[in-house]
Computed example of a mutant assay.
Amino acid sequence: MQFVTRSQWGARPSRYDLVYIGSTRGVKIHYEGTAVPVALAKDENHTSCAGRVRAIQASHLANRQEDYSDIAYTAMVCPHGYVYEGRGSHRKTGANGNQTLNANHYAVCAMVGDSGLTTPTDKQLAGLRDAVEWLRASGGAGSEIKGHRDGFGTACPGGPLYAWVQKGAPRPGGTTPSKPKPPTYEPFPGVGWFKANPRSPIVTAMGRRLVAVKCSAYRSGPGPQWTEFDRQSYARWQRHLGYSGDDADGWPGPSSWAALKVPKV
């Protein structure tokens, strides 16, 4: 995957904190819905794509009626197949039409429009598949690939792109990939395991998840050795889930551990 991070394309900071989501049913495909120049698809014009993403973010942030927190899309894909990180994985999109739809699916937008460049390139279709598979692997996205119009009254993502979605969103020159294996997570090892001051890659994986959900109290790390910073970070996660008092003491329990979804190591 040719992935372009927010810092690489020059994203502005989010206006508000983005809402965390652990998983979705899948991904909805979008288009820009306005004119996109045909010339954008030329190889020599790839240098314009990052600026296009910046302009779309700026227009969304300037839309006071919608009051967007950030660029509405989870990601954007240019005609050359590059995937531009938008809100990113584990962040609720703002593009699908309402709060429920935004929580149910991520939103990936192709740089095609309702006039000019209306048909996605093969590189772009491959990039869209890359984005879907990234969100499955790193964002808890389910197996569904739908169009924006599925469940919301809109022409998006346009005729050519929606026809591709209806075919199962196959990679160009191939067939629809088999359904990916569901992610596996570390089973809860028991609170006694943590109180025994373990040193394990499980502790590192847990710490990385706590950093990802913005509950870090680490000064450095995380690392494999359980420390007081791990306990403080986990207490922040418990409070994030709504726990308080003894239920937010930083010692992992089965329910909060299941919600954290620590990847299998």
Rank of each mutant, 00 (worst) to 15 (best):
M111G: 08
G139W: 02
P79I: 04
W193N: 08
R129K: 02
A50I: 03
R54Y: 01
E228I: 13
S143G: 01
K264H: 14
Y162I: 14
M206W: 04
L117G: 09
C156G: 04
K179Y: 00
W164Y: 07
A72L: 13
V36W: 10
R64K: 10
L117Q: 04
R236E: 13
R231H: 02
F188V: 12
A11D: 02
V203A: 13
D247C: 07
R87M: 05
Y82T: 09
N96K: 09
G153N: 08
R25S: 04
E144P: 06
I145T: 15
Q99N: 13
A72V: 13
Q99I: 15
V203Q: 09
A137E: 09
L210D: 12
P182S: 12
A169D: 11
L210I: 03
G250S: 00
D43G: 00
Y68V: 03
F194K: 09
G140V: 00
G127P: 04
W9K: 05
G153Y: 05
A141G: 00
V265M: 12
D70R: 01
P170L: 04
A75C: 11
A39I: 06
T5Y: 08
A163D: 09
A50Q: 03
P180Y: 01
G113W: 06
A163H: 07
D43V: 00
G151E: 06
P187D: 14
K214V: 14
